[in-house]
Design a protein around this nucleic acid. Structure first.
Lengths: 146, 146
DNA sequence: GTCAGTGCAAACCCTTTGCAGAAAG
DNA sequence: CTTTCTGCAAAGGGTTTGCACTGAC
């Protein structure tokens, strides 16, 4: 399910359909996340939500994000050592991450494909496959021979 | 460069060759990391090092790991939201991560291949390409329809 | 009225930092 | 001797938790 650009009515309905009671805060958070394709941190979500609807706390943002991830309507991007990013696009796709600027860009699954997924150990279930291409803006001086 | 299973003399020499002065602590840390192929956290490294050589502090472990990563003799695995793992195998390969048990296993680049690496934006240099297959041990009950 | 959801602040945990002392070259 | 490195403890920063309050049904 991909909820990006869903309108508010649909969002509430969709949450309800997943057994998530659509509280004011969850709607506000969902509205921020699903407004467009993006890669956004919890802190950024909190900022944006509070700009639109002051009564959402940090704890609720985290609770809600974890709930959305568990329900698989948001994808968690573990890309940076310091913080998690959240991606409303749950369609299979990959990422290119600039370690210098922090910029994250999508790579479609069509343009970059992963083949040869190994046989999974028994009793184990596939959860996801993440491909992260890391780039840096500038050459590392120390790595360049003089 | 892959330093796994190097002996101590080689390790000191290799560090020196990279402009890393081979202090007692760095050797002790390197000895733990490069003793075998593994995926190990900073905390685990600290434990093991202290078991063998009591005089290494947490700060030095972190400093040394960051130095080794920068010098590209250790690969940093950003796989889990809570902590970074370190991999002495710098040859191109991928990982399968069990989110329930925390187990990390290697997938060779031969068995799983990534094709269609996008053209990088100009002024940007490839730093690495990480593929993580996430699995879980048990089906998520809430995800199973009743 | 009951139970789930929220807000606040404190706790947590991994990682980094500041600085004085120790070691390397 | 000078510079780099280390140890300690404290600070930092993202995330989680405990608990009382609020709101949904």
């Amino acid at each position: 399910m991909n909820l990006v650009s869903n309108n508010l009515v649909d969002l509430a309905e969709n949450l309800r359909g997943l057994g998530i009671s659509p509280t004011k805060q969850r709607i506000a958070i969902g509205e921020v996340i699903f407004s467009r394709n993006q890669h956004i941190s919890a802190e950024q979500i909190l900022e944006k939500v509070q700009k639109a609807d002051a009564s959402v706390s940090k704890a609720t943002v985290y609770n809600t994000l974890n709930l959305f991830v568990e329900k698989k309507i948001v994808r968690e991007l573990i890309i940076d050592r310091s913080k998690v990013f959240y991606d409303p696009n749950t369609d299979f796709h990959h990422h290119i991450y600039n370690v210098d600027t922090g910029e994250i860009r999508d790579i479609s699954a069509e343009s970059l494909s992963v083949t040869g997924l190994p046989e999974l150990p028994s009793g184990v279930q596939l959860e996801g496959a993440d491909v992260v291409i890391r780039v840096r803006s500038k050459p590392v001086e120390s790595a360049v021979s003089v």
